[in-house]
Computed example of a mutant assay.
Amino acid sequence: MTVIVRDLRADARADLEGFARVRHLALPYMLLTADSLAHDLAHMHPDAHYRPLVAVADGEVIGTAQVLLVHDSAEPGVGSVNVYVHPRHTGRGAGTLLVRAAEEHLAAHGAVRLYSWVLDEPGNRAFAARHGYRSSRSAHFLRLDLVGGTLPPLADPPPGVELRRGSDFAADPRPLFELDARTTADEPSDVDHEFTDYESWLAETWRHPLFSPELTSVVLVDGRPAAFSAARTDGGRRYGTVMTGTAQEFRGRGLAKLAKNDSLHRARAAGYTEAFTGNDTGNGPMLAINKWFGYEVCATEVRYVRELG
Results as ranks from 00 to 15, higher is better:
2 T>E: 08
12 A>H: 15
13 R>Y: 06
17 E>A: 14
23 R>M: 11
24 H>I: 00
26 A>N: 10
27 L>G: 04
32 L>I: 11
32 L>A: 08
34 A>Y: 08
35 D>A: 12
36 S>C: 07
38 A>W: 01
45 H>Q: 09
50 Y>M: 00
52 P>H: 08
66 Q>V: 10
72 D>Q: 14
73 S>K: 06
77 G>E: 02
77 G>W: 05
80 S>W: 11
84 Y>I: 00
85 V>R: 08
86 H>P: 09
92 R>Y: 00
97 L>Q: 15
102 A>Y: 07
103 E>F: 04
108 A>K: 13
121 E>D: 09
124 N>E: 15
126 A>K: 10
126 A>L: 11
126 A>E: 11
128 A>N: 11
135 S>Q: 12
135 S>D: 03
143 R>W: 13
146 L>R: 06
146 L>C: 04
146 L>S: 00
162 E>S: 05
169 F>E: 10
175 P>T: 04
175 P>Y: 02
176 L>A: 04
177 F>K: 09
178 E>I: 05
180 D>P: 04
180 D>M: 04
183 T>E: 09
196 T>G: 13
200 S>V: 07
201 W>R: 12
202 L>T: 07
207 R>Y: 07
209 P>T: 05
210 L>G: 12
220 L>Q: 07
227 A>D: 02
229 S>T: 05
230 A>W: 13
233 T>D: 09
238 R>Q: 08
241 T>K: 03
243 M>K: 13
243 M>G: 03
247 A>S: 06
252 G>R: 09
256 A>K: 11
270 A>R: 07
276 F>P: 05
277 T>I: 07
278 G>A: 14
287 L>K: 11
288 A>F: 12
294 G>K: 13
295 Y>P: 09
305 V>W: 02
